[in-house]
Design a protein around this nucleic acid. Structure first.
Lengths: 260, 260
DNA sequence: CATTCGATATCGAGA
DNA sequence: TCTCGATGTCGAATG
């Protein structure tokens, strides 16, 4: 990691370091007393105070106060940063075109400014989501019920994509809607829409079902169910199956698999 | 601003600085090669790579990669940070109780670490939101249409809260749904739901309207309208009124008021 | 404490 | 480019 640090620089030296860092596509950190103005999707102003400024090589621009996770002001990736000197203050501007947004930081005093070329080739691995739930159910369909056979995933219908389509032991059609968190009314409604897709349309599945006099079962699969959702669910004749999303990383799976 | 910087510190020195900073409730920045594990609402792992770590005195803990506005991992305010040494690595842990969440950062190599006591007494002033739009319309109802009289704000119905309820010059009921940005299909649907609330329920307003043979008008108030939203809007007989959210800071208002 | 809702939401996927 | 949905959404206001 190549880096540089300047302590208590004057305006010109700080400006020089910023230009150098932008040229080298480095990540910049500035502890400084500044004033911030934003105009774009909204409008904001932050009066003089000490903050931390972070400028990333992808154009992201963050200003952090000493509280909260969220930056007090920011610009998204691909924003263009430029610096200049005005009235012996270092000014940093970050702008983007669509939507038109401009962030202006007036810096009165820089405590210290650093830049570094960061090397990071890793991406975050996560688990505990809807997709993982789907993977798990496809692998172990019996956790829905004995005899359940998934036939399709992300099955396209009028109102969107059905998470998992399948058949039960009696060959009834099953429509599964997955939620990784507590399912609300919206999930029940969505499942209801999928069911109507099969009722309304001249769907191949439906024809087959009519001929065989089979049922179409809607199943909401989630770790838990909201009270309001439960009501609607019963009214609509939709079933609920409690399933926790798997909290296991792919890496872990690999290791498990490698062990064999 | 009191601050301290350590370049290329060994594990013990870095640990010492972290402890000192935590004690002094300073804001810490670390450029380091690290590995991150998170377990809580979800589960994640980030393999070895160079990142920026930001620890704030309110307990917020951020890990930034060289891309994106959002931190790759984080902990919210009030989380507890502690550091220790293990296998000649500096380990930083941040945990909170409800929900139970634990973030572990293993640091193999610190490029530099800084801390500073930041002084910032200012809060962000903002304008250009739905709330500002609502305030403005309550103050100047004629901008919706001549003779419009707002009667209630955040009026509770089955499907949520109606932003503004009122009557037109002919005493017809008006339901206003406000959006500070371009309104999409979802906004039209929401307004539709509010309208059905008045149609379905034995609502006092509805009874009054029936007796007086009045209409119920749905108005979507936003700076602009998406194409798809426009279609649905016409189909549902909902009206659209173009209104920009006021982009004026309270500070400016104060100055205007003080001028009198 | 829990719930609800807005946000300069951000971000990624798909059309 | 735009739209849509998920997010460890965050954060504030409210009950």
């Amino acid at each position: 990691m190549k880096y540089k640090i300047l302590e208590n620089p004057n305006c010109e030296d700080a400006y020089g370091l910023v230009e150098e860092a932008l040229r080298k596509k480095a990540t910049i950190t500035i502890y400084a007393c500044c004033k911030v103005t934003y105009e774009g999707r909204a409008l904001s102003e932050l009066n003089w105070g000490e903050r931390i400024i972070l400028i990333k090589p992808d154009g992201s621009f963050l200003i952090h106060q000493e509280k909260k996770v969220e930056p007090v002001n920011w610009q998204p990736p691909k924003s263009k940063t430029r610096g200049y000197i005005q009235d012996d203050n270092l000014i940093l501007e970050s702008h983007r075109r669509t939507p038109k947004e401009l962030l202006i930081v007036e810096i009165r005093k820089v405590q210290y400014i650093t830049y570094a070329n960061i090397e990071d080739f890793e991406e975050l691995e996560q688990a505990g989501y809807e997709k993982d739930m789907g993977d798990m159910i496809m692998e172990k369909p019996h956790m829905i019920e004995e005899g359940f056979k998934p036939t399709a995933r992300e099955y396209s219908v009028e109102h969107g994509f059905i998470d998992i389509l399948g058949k039960d032991r009696d060959n009834n059609l099953m429509i599964l809607e997955l939620k990784a968190r507590k399912a609300g009314v919206s999930a029940v409604k969505q499942l209801k829409r999928y069911l109507t897709d099969f009722e309304d349309d001249d769907n191949d599945y439906l024809k087959e079902c009519r001929v065989q006099k089979k049922k179409i079962r809607g199943l909401l699969v989630a770790p838990s169910l909201g009270n309001d959702a439960e009501e609607l669910l019963e009214k609509e004749g939709i079933e609920f199956v409690a399933v926790e999303p798997p909290k296991e990383l792919k890496r872990d799976k690999k290791i498990t698999l490698d062990a064999f």
